[in-house]
Write a protein that binds this DNA or RNA. Sequence first.
RNA 1: GGCCCCGUCGUCCAGAGGCCUAGGACGCUGGGUUUUCAACCCAGAAACGCCGGUUCGAAUCCGGUCGGGGCUGCCA
Length: 436
Amino acid sequence: MKLRIAPSPTGYLHIGNARTALFNWLYARANNGKFLVRIDDTDTARSSEEYMQDIVKNFKWLGIDWDEGVEVGGPHGEYKQSLRFDRYREIAESLLEKNLAYEDDGAIRFKVPNEKEITFQDITRGSMKFNLNDIEDFIILRSDKSPTYHLASTIDDIDYEITTIARGEDILSSTPKHILLMQALDADIPTFCHLPLLFGPDGKKLSKRHGDTSVNTFKDKGLLPDALFNYMCLLGWAPGDDIEIFNRDFAISKFDLNNVLPNPAIFDTTKLLWMNGQYIRNIEANSFTAMAIDKISHNIQRELFDNEKERLNKILPSVQERLETLNDLKPQIDFLLDEPFVMNQEDWDSVNSEEGQEYLMAVREKFKNLEEFTVETIETLMRDELKTIGVKPKIGFQIVRVSITGTKISPPLFESIFALGKNGVLARLAETIEKL
RNA sequence: GGCCCCGUCGUCCAGAGGCCUAGGACGCUGGGUUUUCAACCCAGAAACGCCGGUUCGAAUCCGGUCGGGGCUGCCA
C-alpha cells in the first residue's frame, strides 16, 4: 500500500492540506504502507521555493514523516513535477499519436470517449458513477508545453506506483478524467478516497477568506504540534470509545479511512484551544520551563537575563496550568521582567480603599523584617496581618496583587510575591505607597 | 444552469433496525471550591431538516423534497 500527498507550493501549508496529509500518513502507517510527498508545481507562475520549504517544514513540525519524496529521495528522482516536464510531454505526444488526444490552438486536449460512463468505488462514498457526456475534452498540455495538473498528477501516481489516492472532495469531479487517462495509459486504477472538506465558520470551503489558516499562524499563536495533530484527527474521524485526547501511536493503531465521515467539518478553533491547554498542562515541568522561556524571549524579542529566568522558574509551574496557548504566557509574567512596571489604572481604582491601603502599608513593614522569604512565610504573614488589621482577604489581597503585578488578574499571589523576591516586592510596594 | 457530494445538539464526534425517553467532548448557563484568573467538581439547556415508503419496530434502509457545499480554468 502506498499513499501520497501532493501539495502545490502556491502558498504556505494550510490546515486543509495538513489534514489531508495527516489522514494519508495515518492510513499508510496503520497498514505498514509507504507514504510519499511529492510537489505538484506545474503552475510555475504561482509556485515558489519558499512555499515548498514551508510545506515540508510544517509537515515535519506536525510529526508527519515520509518514506519517499522530496528531501528524503527515493527511486524516482526529486519528486518535483517541474523537473519532469519532458516526461509529461512525451506522454502527451504518445496520446496524440494514438489519437487519444488532439491539438487545439497549440494546446493538447484529451479526447473524452462518448457514451460511456466511468464508475469507481470511493472508500468514504461508495459507488461513484459519472456520465462521460458531462465531461468535456480537457487540456493535458498547455500551449506553452507545460502539463496541466490532470496529466502530471496522473502520470506521477502511475510512475510512483500509488495504490491509494486520498484527497479532498473538491477533486471528486476530476477523478473520472484521471481514470480515463490511466486507462488510456494502460495503468492499474488505484483506490480512491475523497475526504470531506474543511469548512470555515460560514460553511464554505476553508480558504484565505477565513483569515490566515496556514499552519504557521497556529504555530505563532502558541499552539503545540501535538495538540494540532490531535485536533485535526478529530475532523472527520474518531478512534471510538469517546476517546478524544490521544497521541500519534494511538491514532495509528485505530485509524482506518473506511471510518472517515463523508460530510464536511467546520474548523472551529475553540475546541482546539481547549485541547491545547490540556496538552500544555501535561508537559513535563522542565520541558515546559524551557519552552516557556523560549517563547517569552521570542515575544519580547530579546534574550532573558539570568535574574529574570530565576524569577520565572519560580512562577512557571503556577502559570503552566493557566494557559491555553503559549502566547498567554507573557501577559501573566510581565511583572517579573526587567521592564518598566505598568500599573493598570482601572484595576487599581477598583481595588483601592482606605482599609486596603492600611493593609498594604502594614504588610510592607512586615515584609521588611521577614528573614525567611518563602511562599509559606509570605502566606502566614499576610494572613496574620489580615486578622490584625481586620480586613477581608479579598480587600487585602487584591490591593497587594495590583500593587505587585499591576493587574487584578495574575498568577497566585503568594507565588507571585515569592517569585518577584523580597527586594522587588518592597520596591514595588514603596512605589505604590508613595503615589497614594 | 449542468454534473456531483453531503445533511445527528451552536461546533466536533458516537450511533452501522430494537440496547436511543439519542451518548461523549468543546462552548454556553447555574452552582460548588476560592485571594484574582485558571484548573477541578456537580447540575442544566441544546440535535436525528422535512415528507412519504419498507418493517412488528428507523437517527439507522429506500424514494422524494428542502437546505448546504464542491466542480464546471491552458489553478490545483
